[in-house]
Simulated assay, not measured.
Amino acid sequence: MKSWRKAIVGTDATVSEAIAAIESGSIQVALVLDASSRLVGIVTDGDIRRGLLRGMQLSGLATEVMNRSAVSAPATLSREERLHLMRQKSIKQLPLLDGNGQLIGVETFDELIEAPHYPNPVLIMAGGLGERLGALTRERPKPMLNVGGRPLLETIIRNVVQQGFRNIFISVNYRAEMIVEHFGDGSAVGAAIQYVHEAERLGTAGALGLLPQRPELPVVVTNGDILTTINYGALLDFHNGTAAQATMAVREHKVHVPYGVVTASDGYLETIREKPTESWYVSAGIYVVGPTVFDHVERGVRIDMPSVLERVVANKGRVAVYPIREYWLDIGRMEDFEQAHAEFNEVFP
């Protein structure tokens, strides 16, 4: 049984402390206990992200976002009974209680079965020119630039494979032969790689229309120039837990205005905000798209992912939003490339 004690927080814990407990623990949740060690609720990564979208502050109480109806079980249950209960309830963590209702352990679904494996396809968009990086991409595609001693695309693929995804498609266009020659069929990195060749560049979503057949499962889609420690499995689980046809990963972007910001009406001053920090959620270039989304992509026609998602919404579909707290860097400019080199060994040991 995995160590779970680092995941414990009290009823007075903040959301920030719950995040720290999730990250330092080994069971992917925070356990909220009262003074008598009785389970009050569970806080998941999804609970926190939904709370942040509602405007919840990190200084707020974790009890405001926790699940108060979390499933638990007597510690006397057999392995088979625990596994059956977890499958029945579609849960990955099962708190175990003694006869007095006190928490004495946590069973995890991953421990009860073999290592996680996701049959869902992953599509990596690697056909762009990377023109903003100038001479660096004159002879090679941006995803093949070395960061930390290996191609950026290799880091993305290794992360995906380590998280249980094996079925990988790579969309290629510019200098496609370099990518195909380096990765081949993917067996060297534990994957099964197929290539989607764009005869002409089709935007950030056009490659969806070139997949050999319409997927039956949701597809994880990521741009090929992103360094991130996102948990793709958690993203997929989040998507599957919604009624959405697609999910967009987003990142909070903050801008500090070094001046007093003035609002006026009819030529008269209303307010002055001194050096405010504005923030927005921006697309992180990572998505989950369900099978019905493919209805909005024509084969061989250029289209970007925002346009596809707008079509989904226009047709009364839903697109969920998944805030990223993990490390994330879009390598679009020279300064981003330099930052990736400086941080790589610390983020990807």
Rank of each mutant, 00 (worst) to 15 (best):
W4M: 01
V9S: 05
V15W: 03
V15C: 03
S16P: 00
E17A: 09
E17L: 04
E17G: 05
I19R: 09
A21F: 07
I27W: 02
I27V: 13
I27R: 00
L31M: 04
V32Y: 04
V32D: 08
V32F: 03
L33K: 09
D34S: 08
L39V: 07
L39I: 14
G41D: 05
T44Q: 08
T44V: 07
D45A: 13
D47T: 11
R50N: 15
L53V: 11
L53T: 08
L61M: 06
T63L: 14
M66K: 13
V71M: 04
A75H: 07
S78K: 06
E81M: 03
L83N: 03
L83G: 00
L85K: 02
S90V: 13
Q93K: 07
L94D: 02
P95R: 07
G101P: 07
G101R: 03
D110H: 06
L112Q: 07
P116A: 03
H117S: 09
N120L: 04
V122F: 05
L123W: 08
I124H: 06
G127P: 08
G128L: 15
L129R: 15
L129N: 03
L136H: 10
L136P: 00
R140S: 10
K142G: 04
K142W: 01
G148W: 03
G149C: 09
E154L: 12
I157L: 15
V160G: 05
Q162G: 12
I170K: 11
I170C: 11
V172K: 04
N173K: 11
Y174L: 04
M178H: 11
I179N: 05
V180D: 02
A191F: 10
I193C: 05
Q194H: 14
A199Q: 14
E200P: 01
A205F: 02
A205E: 07
L208T: 12
L211M: 07
V221C: 12
T222R: 02
G224V: 05
L227W: 00
T228C: 02
I230R: 08
Y232G: 00
A234C: 00
F238H: 11
G241Y: 01
T247H: 04
T247N: 04
M248T: 12
A249Q: 00
V250F: 01
V257W: 08
V257M: 09
V262K: 12
A264L: 10
D266E: 13
G267Q: 09
Y268E: 10
E274S: 15
K275E: 15
P276L: 11
S279L: 06
Y281R: 05
Y281N: 03
V282Y: 00
S283L: 08
S283P: 02
A284Q: 03
I286C: 02
V293F: 09
F294N: 07
F294V: 12
D295G: 10
D295I: 05
E298Q: 14
V301H: 15
D304Q: 05
K316H: 15
K316Q: 13
R318M: 10
V321P: 04
E326C: 07
E335A: 05
E335D: 10
E335R: 13
D336A: 01
F337D: 01
E338Y: 06
H341Y: 06
H341R: 11
A342E: 09
